[in-house]
Write a protein that binds this DNA or RNA. Sequence first.
DNA 1: TATATTCGTAAGCAATTACTCACTCTTTAG
DNA 2: CTAAAGAGTGAGTAATTGCTTACGAATATA
Lengths: 172, 172
Amino acid sequence: MTEKQISILESALELFSSKGFDAVPTSLIAKQAGVSEGLIFRHFKNKQGLLNAIVQMGKEKIAFKIQLITEIVDPQKRIQAIMEIPFSLETDQYPLWRLIYSLKWQQEYSDDEFSRPIKEVLVNSLNELKYFDADAEADLIMSYMDGFASTILLKGEVVNKDKLLHALRKKY
Amino acid sequence: MTEKQISILESALELFSSKGFDAVPTSLIAKQAGVSEGLIFRHFKNKQGLLNAIVQMGKEKIAFKIQLITEIVDPQKRIQAIMEIPFSLETDQYPLWRLIYSLKWQQEYSDDEFSRPIKEVLVNSLNELKYFDADAEADLIMSYMDGFASTILLKGEVVNKDKLLHALRKKY
DNA sequence: TATATTCGTAAGCAATTACTCACTCTTTAG
DNA sequence: CTAAAGAGTGAGTAATTGCTTACGAATATA
């Protein structure tokens, strides 16, 4: 991965996440990255390929987090760790997650490969705990997470994260 | 409001909410509405004006719902009514709300005039109930609502609404 | 050193974009 | 009934879009 490739990815991520994929022309990405527009297509084939590369990064990061969580033996603690994912995101990774969340609302780019592995861990953990309807319960938890993640990502540091986290812990 | 104006608004809403504002050309809207492209600009001035008209509809609908809820005297019941808004949406209004939710993620079109009045009612009600930190508590409830609304709007009828609603009721 | 491959650019291209304009047809008002 | 205003259209237009291509520079490989 060359320095200019990274620069392109960073600029694209920043622009996509703040304005939306379709609202950002490749010319602007190139300008902000300080490279020629053609280079984008050399490295990423097309605009969609550029988005895919960014999304791929997100998938790898989520996979890594989940890998760690899977290793927790106590299912109760495992569920808690899952639920705390939105709170454990670092500020400099907000743009990536904002982009991923915004893509969910667009038919053509929506992709459940982010939520699927998370739900899987939840369902397994809930089954271990002999929950009656593990699948529905997992959906419920995913709903909470979605709400918290949205709030954190959109309001940034304004929101009272401790309060949210405390409420969440109390309930599980 | 002429018949063709309505047709334009309906087509635009459907397309915007499924593909995203920037991904939909006015030519496609006109085609789907069965009118000439020029008519869009006659009635709505520009593409942004078309979006504004749609968003305005959403604001009026939310204002109406809130007006009704404000009239509930018991603050506890008022809060419950607010929280149940996402569950009371009719299927044929999903596109409108999907669009509004998707716009939240785009810097240029984001607009807190949907959440503000809801939070206002919540804060007032929580204060009536002598909550310690009504503002933070309201944010918490808004987070729940966001999560539920996202789940319902994105998964459609697939999701187990009763389970979600039951969980919500139990907690408040 | 020679050569093949990758990195990078500038210019340009066809298609699409939002929007305008000149015009006709329909509706309304006095 | 007449005239003004609004509804509606089709053919444009300038600008922008994603993307290609021809080429030079750098780098790796032999």
